[in-house]
Design a protein around this nucleic acid. Structure first.
Length: 428
RNA sequence: GCGGCUAUAGUUCAGCGGCAGAACGCCUGACUGUGGCUCAGGAUGUCGUGGGUUCGAUCCCCACUAGCCGCCCCA
């Protein structure tokens, strides 16, 4: 059916009842964030392209291959067209807003969370979409606000463990590493290049390519034959300066005290250029190749990279689509909602009275489905049983007498209830 | 971006070079105001799109599109 319009590749419609699960996830996230004193930030869905080029990194796959970018037309002949991009992630936008509104001038630590769509033009797969939803948070501020403290790292990780637990996601793994400062990373890259030179010839094709373009990525290789070689490569921990080492040690100490279990992964390197020091990933089996539920880390130099003041920070982004998939795999499907009562008018003449009754009940806070007088009683019962705990029958008799007939589907008990008592009866 | 698998009813899926199928769901009746069980009947649809081979294609071939799996990357 080429004529009918369809959602474009990599995008999808979310429909009830699945949206109930999305709502639950978002409500839980908001509640947890509130307990940790985070406030919501909403940034635009598109930004100046250079924000991502400078923030995320020109050489990353995200920026070099996956962004939706276009030239916005100039308003006047004298004006240049502006290059705009649908946001591929939200951290850069948050930091841009932090700089633009001079939030650092408050002297306060900024704790901001966001929930919203992001866009990357990748090949779609389960758990990977071109429009996908992230729930993320950032802790950022001038150094004097404590933004650089390892306690912030530990607090964010502890909050994430709590959030996943409250969502009902069991069996997650937290993997942790420190990639050090920008200088540490540059030094490590050199060390790695030198160590790879004599052995790279024995490795897989991908690794041979990575050894040239991005040696850090060799550590991600999953080819079994390469593992013995990779295990003998120098680890980044040895290239860290003393300050970074102490910082990471302090994060681990705080996590231990907080009772958050983690697994150190010296080979965890993240794909965005802005990450420094602590990096982490929460993974879950059963997601297939896209096994990361969320990822994040520290970005002490990001603000300066995009022209702002020194503002160290740490943050994360959760793949909401992946949270949904994981919860569905754990069989926590959204149960079809049961309304409190189904109002069944008997005959089209009582339709108006049925609307009045439904209004009264709904205004009292009850969840009501309203049927239709053209339905035969049998059909009303069947429709009601699908969605409601009880049926309220409203025929001519009931309108005349003011006594309604209510049948409870779970007990099979049928009652006569005066209209004045109906609300309290249904609230039982 | 690369490689592989797949595409048939609202849903999950059979099927065959010659009238398009099942289950569930849906509609009608048995049953004028009492459902769930039962029985009888009914509608499901351009067989993803476009082209080719053929007397004839839903089936074979090609291309495209989309989904899934792996790679890549990442949330």
């Amino acid at each position: 059916m080429s004529q009918t319009l369809k959602a474009v590749r990599g995008t999808r419609d979310l429909l009830p009842p699945e949206t109930a699960l999305w709502n639950r996830i978002e409500a839980t996230a908001r509640a947890v964030f509130a307990r940790y004193n985070f406030g919501e930030i909403r940034t635009p869905i598109f930004e100046d392209t250079s924000l991502f080029a400078r923030g995320v990194g020109e050489e990353t796959d995200i920026v070099s291959k996956e962004m939706y970018t276009w030239e916005d037309r100039a308003r006047a002949q004298s004006e240049k067209a502006q290059s705009l991009t649908l946001r591929p992630e939200n951290t850069a936008g948050v930091v841009r807003a932090y700089i633009e509104h001079k939030l650092g001038e408050t002297g306060q630590l900024q704790k901001l969370y966001y929930i919203g769509p992001q866009f990357r033009r990748e090949r779609p797969q389960k758990g990977r979409y071109r429009q996908f939803f992230q729930i993320g948070a950032e802790v950022i501020g001038p150094p004097s606000s404590g933004s650089e403290s390892p306690l912030r790292d530990a607090e964010v990780l502890e909050m994430l463990a709590t959030l996943l637990d409250e969502l009902g996601i069991t069996g997650w793994t937290l993997e942790l590493n420190s990639v050090g400062s920008a200088a540490d990373r540059a030094r490590y890259n050199e060390t790695l290049r030198a160590a790879l030179a004599p052995v790279v010839g024995q490795m897989c094709e991908d690794c041979q390519r990575r050894a040239v373009t991005n040696p850090l990525r060799v550590l991600d290789c999953k080819v079994p034959e390469d593992q013995p070689i990779i295990e003998k490569l120098p680890v980044i921990a040895d290239s860290l300066d003393q300050e970074s080492k102490d910082h990471f040690a302090a994060v681990l100490t705080a996590l231990d005290a907080g009772g958050v279990t983690y697994k150190r992964n010296p080979r965890l390197v993240r794909g965005l250029d802005y990450y420094t020091r602590t990096t982490f990933e929460f993974t879950h089996g059963g997601l297939g190749a896209q096994n990361a539920l969320l990822g994040g880390g520290r970005y002490d130099g990001l603000s300066e990279a995009i022209g702002g003041p020194k503002a160290p920070g740490i943050g994360f982004a959760m793949g909401e689509d992946r949270l949904v998939l994981t919860l569905q795999a754990l069989d926590q499907k959204a149960a079809p909602p049961q309304v409190d009562a189904y109002v069944a008018p008997l005959g089209e003449t009582v339709n108006p009275a049925a609307l009045a009754l439904a209004r009264e009940l709904r205004r009292a806070g009850l969840r009501i489905e309203l049927g239709d007088g053209s339905f035969r009683l049998k059909k009303s019962f069947e429709a009601a049983d699908n969605v409601a705990r009880r049926i309220v029958i409203l025929g001519e008799d009931e309108v005349q007498s003011g006594i309604l007939t209510v049948k409870d589907f779970s007990t099979g008990v049928q009652s006569k209830v005066p209209r004045a008592e109906l609300v309290s009866f249904l609230k039982q």
